[in-house]
Design a protein around this nucleic acid. Structure first.
Lengths: 206, 206, 206, 206
DNA sequence: CAATAATCGAGACGGTACGTCTTGTCTTCAC
DNA sequence: GTGAAGACAAGACGTACCGTCTCGATTATTG
């Protein structure tokens, strides 16, 4: 999808207008209904763009949605610096949960759903959304395990999964909502379980 | 889906053969490829059954697959009795992970994927697969929190999600495999993090 | 195309309404523009019928048009009986020319044009339109050659081609119109060339 | 199509190489399959030329093919001089039939087919291929009608159509092949019908 | 023992999306 | 002013499923 290569030699250049319209339209349609319900045909129609133009630059509707998703920085969760790693993680987790409690959460899980029948989609989503974010988390978790002497034998990767997975579990199963109570309490309870006491704002006690 | 109601007055009775064939065929097809890839048309064709017959008894292909899934007890994970709740949970988790590492895991996550665009499917899957199993887990977790004095303020529900969510996270994201190492180490590491030491067979030390 | 076979056993019977609408619509569209310009998509749209229904019963738009053409007996040229074969042929030729001077002529030549890139179309058109008509002509030509002692070595087939070909030549090349003068004079001149004198109404002199 | 006008003022001159390649490629492709099956896109691709270049100099693929056809003198049928007009016509007819029995015949009838949906194509083909040839034929037919006292009221044009039309009829309908027997016998039989006896080589008897 | 009623298979129906293809136009850079 | 490269909007291609429907045939219970 990233043709930033220097083969922009000859020929009519790609229309930036078309590109932007497609992404915006896809995002709008996906929000109005679901990723599964939208179609290449529908995006083309609503964007006033030919299907060929879409297929020239994207393989599937999931690719379009992923591109729109990443392009628009839809899930923005900066990792705090200069604070205790536990505080950073709690803050980061809450930002994420906040956003997942709204339509970006639907989008994420619907893209994942789309990926279950197309490994390529899953791969692309991991590379463009998951891995970069996870690297940041990993560093902080590394700090945390060292500072708090928590490691046991659990790797930073496993620990990160453990902390964030319940969020995805609620997104996916929808058995329980990602509501204010969950956002407020879960990370505090999680760290208390590990023996790390934080106040309700996520700051270390004592 | 379960019309066991007493409106079986007159008329030709439902064909049990057709019902069984549909479920078996749907399961076979879903295993051979993916739930997303199979179609009502395809199931009917492969089962030698008319489409109308399928639509008469099921709303969607997901309903058929869920029915086949539950009917055939595809994921069997008995909860051990007469042992420490931590031991029971580890044992149960490992049984589940073992099964999720193979095609039943694909099936589960693909049904969940299907449910992301159809709340009814998600509801049905939760009711017929998730809730019953979760009730059993919940009881044991209740015991565990009491016995180990672990509760803090984390509810049994949250604790159960915390323990099982990483499994679903791997299923869904496929960023890391559900392999032998994970199955062996994760539950041990998880409990060590909580201060509960178990040996590699999941038995309490000391 | 002719599924008059007795396999109408089970299943929903074919919709006669759909069949008739498709043929009527195709004919109308072909007359309004050209056979080449119409599309399966367009016929389906204008007829309020799904594309699948058309493709279920016809292979190509040419098949549809041929069916409409033959079904509606668009070119009706009865061969006169109980008269001299020369008179019969002149009468028949003039009826045909009369009709070819209008849109049925366009249709015929456009179907032939369509057939130049698809032998199957040509074969179907010959079988459903040409051969039956030609058999009738052939008999009369046989009579003519015998009665007038004209044969030389020219076969009835060749003779028929010779008589009718100029009509198709004008249709195809459009270098000269099929107008009143041509219709009036050509067959008379043709027979005079062979030594058979006919008056302007196509009746034998003397 | 023929811009031999004196507007060759400034700028890069037209590439003769491109022109020749386009014509040669179009001809090759049309021979390999059919005129109907080839596309502007395909010609450009196979010729290594841009589509714009083709569209700048030709209106349609038919124009390209006609140009290639005429340019390469694809159908060469010189009219014999210094012999009886009947002999000349038979000789000329046989040359034409000989060539029409092979791919040039396919090309001619496919161009005509293309012209049925585009009067401009038909007009261009008539002007560049038909009219010049027909003028030559016309002169000889004029002689023939005078010499043999055949005229009746049939014009030279009609007579020429009568003689050559069966050839086009076979090309178009493909109901009978243009084979050796037809080439050998038809013109002899035709003239015998008119009372002109020729031997098998097309020479006047007696 | 017929009448009733719900089932079954088969498969046609109007829709609609798929991903590919061609059309004729356009835009950019190189010559 | 050409030319090659190639993007663009438009829209048809033929296939596949969707969910609904209309058949005739089958199989129970009910009157």
């Amino acid at each position: 999808m990233n043709d930033d290569v220097q083969k922009r030699k000859s020929g009519r250049p790609r229309s930036e207008a078309a590109r932007a319209t497609v992404l915006a339209t896809a995002l709008r349609l996906a929000r109005e209904d679901t990723v599964q319900s939208i179609t290449m045909e529908g995006i083309a129609r609503a964007a006033g763009v030919s299907k060929a133009t879409i297929y020239r630059w994207w393989n599937s509707k999931a690719s379009v949605v992923i591109d729109a998703f990443v392009e628009n920085h839809i899930v923005r969760t900066p990792m705090p610096r200069d604070c205790h790693p536990a505080e950073a993680l709690v803050h980061h987790w809450r930002l994420l949960a906040e956003q997942y409690s709204d339509w970006p959460g639907d989008l994420v899980v619907q893209i994942l759903a789309e990926g279950q029948s197309d490994p390529e989609v899953l791969r692309e989503f991991r590379e463009r959304f998951h891995y970069g974010r996870r690297a940041v988390v990993r560093e902080v978790v590394d700090d945390l395990l060292r500072v708090c002497n928590l490691s046991g034998d659990m790797s930073a990767e496993d620990f990160a999964d453990l902390f964030y997975a319940p969020l995805y579990m609620r997104l996916m199963w929808r058995h329980r909502a990602i509501d204010a109570a969950f956002i407020a309490e879960f990370p505090i309870n999680f760290f208390r379980l590990l023996g790390v006491e934080l106040d309700e704002d996520g700051r270390l006690r004592g």
